[in-house]
Nucleic acid binder design. Structure first.
Length: 867
RNA sequence: GCCGAUGUGGUGAAAUUGGUAGACACGCACGCUUGAGGGGCGUGUUGCGCAAGCAGUGCCGGUUCGACUCCGGCCAUCGGCACCA
């Protein structure tokens, strides 16, 4: 039979029409309101996974909905194509990263096209192409000229066997994942961007991001971490040196009983030079990877240096300790320690028998003791000499003033945010356009020589080190300034560099004369940005920073890149692995694993299908290449079609909620589309429909129309304001369930049904565009659905005479009453008390008590309080 | 450890502003349709109870006429923590 729902043929023919008509290619049309909808571009890891499907379907639904609002909608797509996985694949499979990446892009583009996403593919870009990255080289040199870029030493994870730098994720339990060697921290020269120069503006402007989720704004603000405190210097006994520390609690200064410095601190190194034990301790501190989380989790250890610091107020001597938890890269690499009023210092002092001196007591005179734990609240000063009796707030100022008079310190603002280190010792990234000359130092590559192209014909060796570092034909060059033989920079940029400005490049991706042009200001800022919550801090902060840098360079005129943000919850899947002989983890796809259950239906283990032997699990985590737990949507597309997959992924949960992947329910989504198909076909087969005559409708027909417009009202709100596509779909399901029961085959009954189907197709078209387009034609429409506007609500259909109220007695549901919409409150109260079941409960509850009050909530309920 | 979230039936979830807890689905059970399978249609499905009803939204406590929703504390899970992207 011809009217079977056949997604495969419908989808390919509808997609062909869109492609032939260039339906989604847009230009700068000033007669329309623009809408730039952007989903975070993917890393081309090989195949799409359900996290991508979810992200890109959300973006597509928003784009199509906005198009139906009559806007000029830009929705582009591209590839975040530089990165570590390409290098790993190169070593594992002996394929060059460029070829591997290109073929992944081809595969994934094909999958995206099959999903029917409304992209303007003419703007596609890939960050690994010189046409793209030449502009960030150019921009980097502009920033260098302006003084935003500088060079300093920074710590990396060093694999002493492979002689290479490791990313944090390549260090497992403190060892290199390939060599198994214990990693060491090593200091190397790197390029930095002064993001701290913009810390204040980045923080201030968080306030302006009113259409961002509150949680993301909070995370951004906390990450920047502005704090007001005092910078002060401690003297060093028998030395002219000084030790600079920052504290947010100068009120506790008199309670300082030691000072802690980072293991890399010059003072620590000096003390270690004639102290083998301390030197050994400092070496031991290097055997941990460079990650804050690992620092925080490790055992807090320290060792006295034998050096004493001089307290800036009392002149007392306090010992200087080296502590493994003090970060050289944060502040001055030294902290003053007040064990009585700081938890970490308290623990440390107890462990090493250092004095604890209480200098704050509670302001309201409550009993408090520091014998069990530190007292970290603010309060009133004691044991603080001339500062005794001051509140913490007053003492803050008094002590700051004292220090500044003595020239030993001053109030200052400190940020948690650190400058952005952009150098990576990797191959598959954008070359940093610098040449090192023995005479001239670091010299920028002249603009005419850009781009510095990354060689793509390369070979990796076992160690995984960057091949261009061993490639004289790449790094041997001459100094642009003096002409002498010189050496090209072999480090590449952090891949966050590429993703910090791609959203702007889409507006003029074809421009080979400049980074951006006037089209940027037509489209920017992005009206709606959609991506995973895991990017809440780093990517979004770097992109905001870059936007301000581009603004200050005159390339864009807005202050912020993304007006509205939707953070998608992660799609999680179980992770499985086996350990290899070097203790590394070999991740196994959940698609190749069978989970075993105990008799209660709880999972008790998992086996690899191939060999039937057990595998280990590392719990649920976001779908990713690195843990190999992505679930490829291809099988579902082949079996059910893109519309089912799109519908299902939107129906499963609201977009901002994380979800554990399961395809339970895909059948249900498909069933719904088949039912929609059948209902519309059956309706259409009964022939043409008369014009709707609203005045002549009976009650049942009116009820269906009311349901229709209530649904439209809800769906419109869900799609435009709430972004809860799951409830929008549910509303359409409810509506169609009602219509299926509506058996009226009269002329007006069929006219009502026609109106319902037309509206349902419009409402569902952003989510399941192919089937809706096809059925639109079935309903006898000559125009394309893609060019239709969002339907309008018929307010008159919503009007009703009577409403149902619920009646509670002491907050519990005891009955329902029907009243006219304009009923007086007194009448409602009376009617509520008169209804039979309610009466019974009032009497039951009475027993010597009385009706205290009756609460009437208009249009909702009546609560009779008996007490 | 720090920052941010989440926790509701067997499962995914809904309840939008403090006002009917479990909409809409999945699964399951039973029935109808079918030669069978598939598909479709219908009924039921939070727990306990024959019922009236009682209890119930991770745990403990609070505010309120009324709490999934607000407040305090705890537990578990997830995301981020600057070289995964």
């Amino acid at each position: 039979m011809s009217n079977e729902y056949n997604p495969k043929s419908i989808e390919s023919s509808v997609q062909k029409v869109w492609e032939d008509n260039k339906s989604f290619e847009v230009t700068e049309d000033h007669s329309k309101e623009k809408f730039y909808c952007l989903s975070m571009f993917p890393y081309p890891s090989g195949k799409l996974h359900m996290g991508h499907v979810r992200n890109y379907t959300i973006g597509d639904v928003v784009s199509r909905f906005q198009r139906m609002q009559g806007k000029n909608v830009l929705q582009p797509m591209g590839w975040d194509a530089f990165g570590l996985p390409a290098e790993n694949a190169a070593i594992k499979n002996n394929v060059p990263p460029a070829a591997w990446t290109d073929s992944n892009i081809d595969d994934m583009r094909g999958q995206l096209k099959k999903m029917g996403l409304a992209y303007d593919w003419s703007r596609e870009l890939a960050t690994c192409k010189p046409e793209y990255y030449r502009w960030e080289q150019w921009f980097f040199l502009k920033l260098l000229e302006k003084g935003i870029v500088y060079r300093k030493k920074a710590t990396v994870n060093w694999d002493p066997i492979d002689q290479t730098v490791l990313a944090n994720e390549q260090v497992v339990d403190g060892r290199g994942w390939r060599s198994g060697a214990v990693v060491e921290q090593r200091e190397i020269d790197q390029w930095f961007l002064k993001i701290t120069d913009y810390a204040d503006e980045l923080l201030e402007d968080v306030q302006k991001l009113e259409e961002w989720p509150e949680q993301v704004r909070t995370m951004q603000a906390n990450w920047i971490g502005r704090s007001e405190g005092v910078n002060m210097s401690f003297g060093i006994e028998n030395s002219k040196d000084e030790l600079s520390v920052f504290t947010t609690r100068p009120d506790t200064l008199m309670g300082v009983t030691y000072v802690a410095v980072a293991p890399q601190h010059p003072l620590a190194l000096e003390a270690a030079s004639n102290n083998p034990e301390l030197s050994a301790f400092i070496d031991e501190c290097k055997n941990i990877k460079v990650a804050e989380a690992d620092m925080a989790k490790m055992e807090k250890k320290g060792m006295a240096t034998g050096i004493n610091a001089v307290h800036p107020v009392t002149g007392d001597l306090v010992p200087v300790w080296v502590a493994n938890f003090v970060l050289m890269s944060y502040g001055s690499g030294a902290v003053m320690a007040v064990p009585a009023h700081d938890e970490r210092d308290y623990e440390f002092a107890n462990k090493y028998g250092i004095d604890i001196k209480q200098v704050i007591t509670s302001a309201d005179g409550d009993k408090m003791s520091i014998s069990e734990e530190a007292y970290t609240e603010k309060g009133v000063l004691i044991n603080s000499g001339e500062f005794d009796g001051l509140s913490s707030a007053d003492a803050f100022n008094a002590i700051a003033d004292f220090l500044s008079k003595e020239n030993k310190g001053a109030k200052t603002v400190n940020y948690r945010l650190r400058d952005w280190g952009v150098s990576r010792q990797r191959y598959w990234g954008c070359p940093i356009p610098i040449i090192y000359c023995d005479d001239c130092g670091a010299v920028p590559v002249p603009e005419k020589d850009l781009p510095v192209e990354l060689p793509t014909e390369i070979a990796f060796d076992e160690t995984g080190g960057s091949p261009i570092k061993k490639m004289p034909e790449f790094y041997e060059t001459t100094c642009p300034s003096c002409g002498k033989a010189a050496r090209r920079e072999t480090d590449t940029f952090d891949t966050f560099f590429e993703s910090s400005w791609y959203y702007a490049r889409y507006t003029g991706a074809d421009n080979n004369q400049s980074m951006l042009d006037e089209r940027a200001d037509y489209w920017l800022p992005v009206d709606q940005y959609i991506g995973g919550i895991e990017h809440a801090v780093l990517h979004l902060l770097y992109a905001r920073f870059f936007h301000k840098l581009m603004r200050d360079e005159g390339l864009v005129s807005s202050d912020e890149p993304f007006t509205k943000l939707l953070t998608q919850g992660m799609v999680l899947a179980n992770t499985y692995y086996r350990e290899n002989d070097k203790g590394g983890q070999e991740w196994i796809s959940p698609e190749n694993v069978d989970v075993q259950f105990d008799e209660k239906g709880k999972p008790k283990g998992a086996i690899l299908r191939e060999d039937g032997k057990p595998v280990l699990t590392d719990g649920m985590s976001k779908m990713s290449k690195s843990k190999n737990n992505g679930v490829d949507p291809q099988g579902l597309i082949d079996k059910y079609g893109a519309d089912t997959l799109r519908l299902f992924s939107m129906f499963a949960a609201p977009p901002d909620q994380s979800m554990e992947w399961s395809d339970t329910g895909v059948e249900g989504a498909n069933r719904f589309l088949r039912r929609l198909w059948r209902q519309v076909q059956e309706h259409a087969e009964r022939g043409s429909v008369e014009k709707l005559d609203i005045a002549s409708l009976n009650d049942e027909q009116k009820a269906i129309r009311r349901k229709l417009y209530l649904s439209l009202q809800k769906v419109t709100d869900d799609m435009s304001r709430r972004f809860t596509f799951n409830t929008a779909i549910a509303a359409n399901m409810e509506l169609l369930n009602d219509v299926a029961k509506f058996k009226d085959e009269s002329e007006q009954g069929r006219a009502v049904r026609q109106e319902v189907f037309e509206t349902v197709l419009l409402m569902l078209s952003p989510i399941a565009p192919h089937i809706c387009e096809e059925l639109w034609q079935t309903l006898g429409k000559s125009s394309a659905l893609i060019d239709e506007l969002w339907p309008e609500i018929d307010e008159s259909a919503l009007v009703q005479d009577n409403i149902e109220l619920i009646v509670q007695v002491n907050g519990k549901l005891r009955g329902k009453i029907t009243v006219s919409v304009d009923a007086e409150e007194e009448n409602i109260k009376q009617q509520a008390q008169d209804s039979a079941n309610v009466k019974k409960f009032i009497n039951e509850n009475l027993a010597g008590k009385s009706v205290r009050k009756i609460i009437v909530v208009k249009g909702r309920l009546v609560n009779i309080v008996v007490a």
